[in-house]
């Protein structure tokens, strides 16, 4: 029962600029959720967001304990060595309970689901990365202009994370 005449979301384009675990998962879950609803999805990884598709970094992403009031830890304590690792470990445990895949497996699911993964050219140059540093499933390295030019058609939305 599709209401084709309604203004439905048809394509979601995410710009992921951060590498904290919570932001990466937000982008991945929304992109995957879009595909599950028959909505097209693409992710443009820029700045620190590139870490999520960097082979040597993606399994070591953390959540931020400092500067994150939702952690409810005093800032002085949150900055102690090992706090981020501890908080990340605890969060990963909760995620596993919810049957959430880790970052690497999530990327495989996204690719298999037809989500396009793009690396930002400027950020790749800035961090002195090569295509080989990124996971093989990356669809290409684009400028932001290239990414915008893919945002065609009615019902396309861009979201910055």
């Amino acid at each position: 029962m599709n209401n084709n005449n309604e203004a439905r979301v048809k394509k979601m384009m995410f710009i992921l600029s951060k590498a904290t675990l919570d932001n990466v998962y937000a982008a991945f879950i929304m992109a995957n959720g879009a595909r599950m609803e028959g909505i097209e999805a693409e992710i443009f990884f820029t700045f620190f967001g590139l870490e999520a598709i960097n082979k040597s970094k993606l399994e070591h992403l953390h959540i931020a304990t400092v500067g994150n009031p939702a952690m409810h830890i005093p800032t002085m304590v949150a900055g102690l060595p090992g706090m981020e690792a501890l908080a990340t470990k605890m969060m990963k445990k909760e995620m596993e309970k919810l049957d959430l895949p880790d970052v690497g497996e999530f990327l495989e699911i996204l690719t298999a689901s037809g989500v396009k993964l793009w690396a930002c050219k400027l950020a790749v140059d800035m961090f002195h990365l090569k295509k080989e540093d990124l996971i093989d499933d990356v669809d290409g390295i684009l400028t932001i202009g290239d990414f915008y030019s893919r945002a065609t058609g009615e019902g396309t939305h861009l979201l910055f994370i």
């Binding site: 995957n32 595909r35 599950m36 049957d99 895949p101 497996e105 699911i109 298999a112 689901s113 037809g114």
Partner: peptide, 18 residues
């Protein structure tokens, strides 16, 4: 059910499911 579980079922890959 979840997409992940279907993909791991050995019945169908996620790509083929789509």
């Amino acid at each position: 059910l979840s997409i992940r579980k279907v993909g791991k079922s050995g019945v169908v890959s996620i790509k083929d499911f789509y």
